[in-house]
């Protein structure tokens, strides 16, 4: 555990040193804030004290930003050869993967914490359902971990950051849109499976305030599978 924290600390430090963290925070707050408060079907437009518009927009903002955050995590180590340094220290492959995952997740949590003023603002306008707010933030964190998992996996494949970014978007778009679309076109078991694989189904019910174990298992499952695949990629390099 301690080893994981040492690496996580370094990764977080590197996010802040490289300005990556600040850029992410500013862009995330800027985009989601703009669409939540100022433009489109924003909070004032729907005339309800709810953060649902924010959650929907945050999901898409995060979808594009998280791969940018994760793209260098392992690809840069592969390119520079520092992965060799790291893995010849007394740490396991899994610890390295977990540490990098946690660093990105922590940065995302910081970003989400900075939106607390949204809660305060909306609750001062009307009667905000705090259960729904909690469930919505929980959904964002679960969605973020899924995207970080996918991003970490695509980053572990090669040593090119751009490839890693695009590949993460490509895999992500299946969960975001394509499975959902296909799910509507199939009946029976296939339709059910495709529907289950769509983030929209799970996310929308969570931001409405329903926390179902099936939804949680979906996000945690995809995250876990991605992390295992990333570890396999690391191990594969040591056999190559």
């Amino acid at each position: 555990m301690n080893k994981i924290w040492i690496i996580t600390k370094r990764e977080l430090q590197s996010y802040f040193d490289s300005l990556m963290a600040y850029i992410l925070l500013i862009l995330f707050l800027g985009f989601s804030g703009f669409f939540t408060w100022l433009y489109g079907s924003d909070i004032f437009f729907i005339k309800q004290a709810t953060l649902m518009p924010f959650f929907s927009i945050a999901r898409w903002t995060l979808f594009f930003f998280i791969p940018a955050l994760t793209m260098r995590l392992l690809s840069e180590e592969n390119r520079m050869g520092t992965i060799e340094l790291l893995l010849t220290k007394p740490v396991s492959n899994w610890q390295v993967i977990m540490a990098k995952f946690l660093a990105s997740l922590l940065l995302l949590v910081i970003a989400l914490l900075l939106t607390i003023p949204y809660i305060i603002s909306v609750s001062s306008i009307g009667n905000l359902d705090m259960g729904q707010v909690f469930s919505g933030y929980f959904a964002l964190i679960l969605f973020s971990s899924m995207m970080i998992g996918i991003g970490l996996f695509t980053s572990s494949i090669g040593n090119n950051q751009i490839v890693s970014y695009l590949l993460a978007l490509f895999i992500g778009i299946f969960f975001q849109i394509i499975f959902d679309m296909l799910g509507h076109n199939f009946l029976g078991f296939v339709g059910y499976v495709l529907d289950y694989l769509s983030t929209t189904t799970h996310f929308d019910s969570m931001i409405r305030g329903v926390i179902d174990t099936r939804d949680v298992i979906f996000f945690v499952g995809i995250t876990f599978i991605s992390l295992v695949f990333s570890e396999i990629m690391l191990i594969k390099k040591r056999y190559a």
Partner: peptide, 30 residues
């Protein structure tokens, strides 16, 4: 791994870190 000190070929380093932070990081990992 704990008994070995290793300097790999081409000497890969975390270039974005200050020397002392980097050495502290490695020390903690060890």
């Amino acid at each position: 791994k704990r008994s070995i000190g290793y300097l790999p070929e081409n000497n890969p380093l975390y270039e974005d870190m200050p020397v002392i932070d980097y050495l502290k990081f490695v020390g903690e990992l060890q």
